[in-house]
């Protein structure tokens, strides 16, 4: 099926991308906030973020806020495009099922 993306379809990564594409293009979310929102552990989230970053679907920027290091995560334009295609592909699977029955 064209448009389906194996990297994004993994359950945790699908949820990560759903959160990030909901933000405006210039906005980013803090690592701990994302972890709490997804209800995952630091290690689990970190591993999936690395995978998405390697695919250029997200960008991670480390900054100092109140002298403490913080990671801000946002979806890249490529990530948004691929996610949109993935969702469209999922929708077309349902549509085709409806048309075939």
């Amino acid at each position: 099926m064209t448009g389906l993306n194996e990297i994004i379809h993994q359950p945790v990564r699908l949820r990560i991308m759903a959160v990030l594409v909901t933000l405006k293009e210039d906005d980013a979310v803090d690592f701990t906030y994302l972890r709490d929102l997804l209800e995952v552990t630091d290690g689990n989230l970190g591993a999936h973020l690395r995978k998405l970053e390697e695919s250029n679907y997200i960008s991670i920027n480390k900054e100092f806020v109140d002298r403490k290091p913080r990671s801000f995560i946002s979806a890249t334009l490529e990530g948004r495009r691929v996610f949109k295609e993935h969702v469209s592909a999922l929708e077309s699977i349902l549509k085709n099922q409806g048309g075939g029955s």
């Binding site: 699908l14 949820r15 959160v19 909901t22 969702v87 929708e91």
Partner: peptide
């Protein structure tokens, strides 16, 4: 369908 439901749920939650 399950995947789309997860996407929608996470977008709403965000």
């Amino acid at each position: 369908e399950d995947a789309l439901a997860v996407v929608q749920m996470m977008m709403d939650k965000t």
